[in-house]
Design a protein around this nucleic acid. Structure first.
Lengths: 120, 120
DNA sequence: CCTTGACCTGGAGTGACTCCAGACCGGTAG
DNA sequence: CTACCGGTCTGGAGTCACTCCAGGTCAAGG
């Protein structure tokens, strides 16, 4: 498949995919006889994983390490697992942030209600 | 209180506070006779709110609008409420992202377990 | 006095994109 | 055949939200 399809299916923009390839987070994608990128299903799965990792706050440095482990084959599965476990922890922290923010918001909204109540 | 205290109490770095003041998200802070910023408790509350909004993904443009409503006084409470409600919706979306990512991760981790299982 | 530490300003640097100009290329319409 | 069109390419500039730094001021302590 070509880049636009890979983009819609993975969630990453075409620009971001090319940028990731330049940065070594995505392996060099095969080209067709026309010189355009052709993405394999494995490529797409990798992009999709990256999409979710990035969207939930994994920094690029870490994705690069992850990618380099990936390139080194199955022997690096333990290291890759460690990175994903670490990321799961990050998800926990984010969840806590969301909850804390929710609290702050409902406190603020309650204050607004009081003001509105007094005005009317 | 001075900037370092405002920083530790709000969660924002001193640099970020100064940057927010420059950008108009934080009102011009009063200065002491020494020319240094003196933060009032209201200033601190505002900074803390900004900290949580930013941390959970409100873009600066929107914080600027929020700040400008705030400067215009109580008449803008409805608009401010709208912005906060909109942000609550964003929190929902983020939560969904986290859940989706969690799924992706556990799928990947299970695959790793299978590989490790086969190797040993 | 001299140093230390917190603070100041203006400006450069960073991370992670995002947008754009200018070129190429295969296919359809006139 | 030629003219255009949409999708892709590359390299490079622009953006957002900080973050870091050089060079300077000032108050208090040794």
């Amino acid at each position: 498949m070509r880049i636009s399809e890979a983009s819609t299916k993975s969630g990453l923009s075409a620009d971001t995919i090319r940028y990731y390839e330049k940065s070594g987070i995505v392996p060099p994608i095969d080209r067709g006889p026309d010189g355009l990128r052709r993405f394999s299903p494995e490529n797409l799965e990798w992009l999709t994983l990256l999409y979710w990792l990035r969207k939930t706050g994994m920094p690029m440095k870490e994705m690069q390490r992850f990618a380099s482990f990936y390139r080194q084959g199955e022997a690096t599965v333990p290291q890759r697992r460690d990175l994903l476990l670490k990321h799961e922890q990050r998800l926990q922290e984010r969840r806590a942030d969301l909850a804390r923010c929710e609290e702050v918001l409902s406190y603020k909204l309650a204050a607004y209600d009081r003001i509105e109540g007094n005005r009317s």
